[in-house]
Design a protein around this nucleic acid. Structure first.
Length: 501
DNA sequence: GTTAATAACGTT
DNA sequence: AACGTTATTAAC
């Protein structure tokens, strides 16, 4: 069946499962799942009902390929089904209740993974998200900023390898985060009907401990202090405003305007993946097509859509690698890397033809907080040494790609680490080591690998380096990390591109 | 041939 | 002095 020919009716939430309100995921994935799955998905906990209906009502408000999504209360037992839908009512009768229908369709997706699967780490399936900026004036009802709740599921593979995976969060945890961590008032069933508008808050949960998936949660990627979230009941038109005092703790001062430089690239002009160069730890940023770039450690990328709406992208800068998460699903996970002295970069977005990114300088508070952190250099050097040995990572590779230093320098630092108090600018190198060490294993490897790929590409443009790169790329492997072999290259070269790194 | 350690030296 | 690079070398 063709997704384009079907409408999806989405219903969720009842008094037993008010927390259903909070789940987010890519709808396109969900549609795939719908297509490929049995028509009766059932889950124990979920009371979501999905219906697929042939032929969306044609209306000038709707593009033909749009999917109509509506929501409805479901007070039956907890289940999820995919059932053929009766004929939809005319659009005119729906516009009152579902007046946001067409807007969602631009990029929305529904995820309906089946939580009754054997795997006990399967994610709860109740999720809904909207990537598309929703025009507030058209849809005044949609007041909720996008909330993304995730958890990381750690898989313990052989050889002590631990893989951290982003997943949707369990409803209980989501509720707990909202109520306990963020101190939202208790969510009751009148507040269940929620629509998520935009990426403002993202929660990631990651674990330092294999046994515990819920050690810490943090807020990333928000650009504006969010103080309230409104839940709307579409059927009773009641509004519930939840204020969130603790979010005020995370103000982000808008940077001076002159520091904003945005780039705009056509899709055809760039390669897949987002590359950039992170070289100096400065809080200023300059971006441009194929231009030099410097990203501060706490810089932030902001995605700007055609309407000028901006929303922050999670950006993680670790060691010499900067990763920009252009979206939350793993597929569009993009990242950026460093080259030793190069400064070229390029951007792309997998979804839209044109996209703008802005780099936003960090706040002073954040930087100062980091600077105050003391590092036990001796211990760190020890740990780095053993990690390099463990994965058979040559000093030269690590030094160059993660630290942007020479092999000799790294060797010296590892063997004769100076105490933190005696370091000046050299602290930065140790910070990078620590950052790298703190990354999840997969990211660490991809940092190194991405840098290698980038280097390889650079060498197709720079002849003098060609031999070196070829050799290092061929020879270098992470002996104890099967992941590297499995992972596809995130940066692939587009032959028509001239955005070398 | 590859890697890590080290000496000698340049830059700020 | 602090911090880094390059060249060299010994060990594997």
């Amino acid at each position: 069946m063709n997704v384009d020919d079907y409408s999806v009716v989405y219903s969720q939430g009842n008094e037993n499962y008010p927390e259903n309100a909070i789940f987010i995921n890519e709808i396109s994935q969900g549609l795939d799942i719908i297509q490929n799955s049995d028509k009766s998905l059932k889950t124990k906990e979920s009371n979501i009902e999905f219906r697929i209906k042939e032929k969306v009502v044609q209306n000038e408000l709707f593009n033909t390929q749009d999917k109509l999504i509506t929501s409805a209360l479901n007070n039956t037992d907890t289940y999820a089904t995919l059932t053929p839908l009766q004929t939809l009512p005319p659009i005119s009768t729906m516009s009152e209740k579902f007046l946001y229908g067409s807007q969602w369709n631009e990029a929305c997706s529904i995820d309906v993974s089946n939580s009754s699967s054997d795997r006990n780490d399967v994610i709860d399936s109740r999720s809904l998200s909207f990537n598309t900026p929703i025009n507030q004036s058209h849809f005044p009802k949609l007041c909720i900023r996008n909330i993304t709740l995730q958890r990381r599921q750690n898989h313990n593979y052989a050889d002590n390898y631990m893989h951290s995976e982003k997943r949707k969060i369990f409803p209980e945890t989501a509720k707990s985060i909202l109520q306990d961590t963020l101190r939202f008032p208790v969510i009751n069933n009148n507040e269940v009907q929620n629509i998520v508008e935009k990426n403002i808050l993202e929660f990631t949960q990651c674990s330092k401990n294999k046994e515990d998936n819920y050690i810490n949660s943090q807020i990333v990627g928000h650009s504006n202090p969010i103080e309230e979230i409104k839940f709307i009941d579409d059927f009773s038109s009641t509004k519930t405003v939840l204020t969130c005092p603790s979010l005020k703790k995370y103000p982000v001062t808008p940077p001076p305007k002159e520091n904003h430089k945005s780039i705009s690239l056509k899709k055809s002009n760039v390669k897949l993946g987002t590359d950039c160069v992170f070289e100096k730890h400065v809080a200023s940023t300059s971006l441009g097509e194929g231009a030099n770039i410097e990203i501060g450690r706490k810089s932030q990328f902001t995605k700007i859509d055609e309407s000028g709406n901006s929303f922050p992208l999670p950006l993680q800068i670790t060691g010499s690698t900067a990763q920009v998460f252009s979206d939350f699903n793993e597929e569009s996970f993009t990242s950026s890397t460093i080259s030793n002295k190069g400064n070229k970069c390029s951007y792309s977005d997998l979804k839209s033809d044109t996209i703008s990114y802005q780099a936003v300088p960090s706040t002073k508070l954040q930087d100062e907080a980091e600077d105050r952190e003391e590092i036990n250099t001796k211990d760190l050097a020890q740990r780095i040494s053993s990690e390099l040995k463990r994965y058979s990572i040559p000093q030269a590779i690590f030094a160059q790609r993660v630290l942007c230093r020479s092999q000799g320098t790294l060797s010296d630092l590892l063997r004769n680490p100076k105490p933190w108090s005696k370091l000046k600018s050299g602290r930065e190198t140790f910070r990078r080591m620590l950052k790298w060490l703190q990354e999840p294993e997969m990211q660490r490897m991809s940092s190194l690998r991405l840098a290698a790929a980038q280097e390889q590409r650079a060498c197709t443009f720079v002849n003098s380096k060609q031999e070196f790169t070829r050799i290092s790329a061929d020879r270098f492997s992470f002996k104890n990390s099967f992941h590297v072999e499995c992972l596809p290259l995130m940066c692939t070269m587009n032959t028509t591109s001239n955005h070398e790194c």
